[in-house]
Design a protein around this nucleic acid. Structure first.
Length: 280
DNA sequence: AGCTGTACCTGCAGGC
DNA sequence: TGCCTGCAGGTACAGC
């Protein structure tokens, strides 16, 4: 599901397909997920696509932007000349527009961008580009892996936390972009028990965890994301990281570190997968 | 302040 | 068969 590697995969696709195109028409099919004035979008030309944690921002040349969060089941599907030979995933996307298409954006040169979301948790807001950084979600976002998340900061934020290390990793205010899949897998790679208090981790535990986190995120990106729930890229294609999970959703299967059995428990309200034998 | 639990939604898997 | 229950997880928020 959409975490840093998945959202970055979408961002790259959108950047490739949208930059230079002008918005000619916006059709909002579900107003629950949409905020702001559509009128500001008409005639705007896309100049860039930015990602903040798991959020995406499409910037226009008229000083307005489209800020979005796809949450669990959101999709951006682009259909245009660049993707004419690509059929979007039948089971994850279906025929467009689908029952889950919430916003349709028409572009010139002629192309269509579909914003889909099954669960209606996603959002799309139209606002001044200068106001994007003031949206509460973006404003509160912690430093991100590969951007400004240093080992020094990571160590500080983990070691001062009284809660479970896994919960700290997934707290977007502390660290931006990490969700359940990559938290589980990085803890398995680092052989650290997800239930341990952050404050109980030694300096070398933290370093191992930091390196493991970057490693699993890198793998996620390499495989173009994990297509759990309904994740697809901007062309509607599934990723392949789900074929390379280390711990996530592997309960009952063998741990790649030690051959132990992956357990499933609930921690901080989320399914948590780890090997009791080697994760300590 | 910091942490935990729950709500938000809806498709789908599994049980009976 | 078909209904029912519970599960999936990113974020906001209530409450301790």
């Amino acid at each position: 599901m959409p975490e840093l590697p998945e959202v970055e995969t979408i961002r790259e696709g959108l950047e490739e397909y949208l930059v230079g195109k002008k918005i000619t028409e916006v059709n909002v099919l579900n107003s629950k997920i949409f905020e702001g004035q559509q009128v500001h979008l008409k005639g705007g030309k896309v100049v860039g696509v930015r990602r903040f944690g798991k959020g995406l921002v499409i910037d226009l040349d008229n000083d307005y932007s489209i800020a979005t969060h796809i949450k669990l089941t959101g999709q951006f599907i682009y259909r245009g000349p660049e993707t004419k030979d690509i059929t979007p995933s039948k089971d994850f996307v279906g025929v467009l527009p689908s029952n889950f298409t919430r916003v349709i954006i028409k572009l010139n040169p002629p192309a269509t961008l579909y914003f889909n979301d099954l669960r209606l948790f996603a959002w799309m807001k139209v606002l001044k580009t200068s106001e994007v950084k003031n949206l509460p979600f973006f404003k509160g976002l912690g430093p991100e892996p590969f951007k400004d998340l240093t080992l020094e900061y990571f160590q500080k934020v983990i070691q001062k936390a009284g809660g479970a290390v896994k919960a700290v990793m997934m707290d977007q205010k502390k660290i931006g972009g990490v969700g359940n899949i990559y938290a589980n897998d990085s803890l398995n790679l680092a052989k650290i028990d997800p239930r341990r208090k952050g404050s109980s981790l030694s300096d070398s535990d933290v370093k191992k965890l930091y390196e493991s986190l970057l490693e699993v995120l890198k793998r996620g990106k390499k495989y173009r994301g994990a297509s759990e729930l309904r994740f697809v890229d901007a062309a509607g294609q599934k990723g392949k990281y789900q074929e390379h999970f280390l711990a996530y959703a592997r309960q009952g299967q063998k741990c790649y570190n030690c051959g132990g059995v992956i357990q499933k428990i609930f921690l901080a309200g989320r399914g948590t997968y780890f090997c009791e034998k080697c994760q300590r």
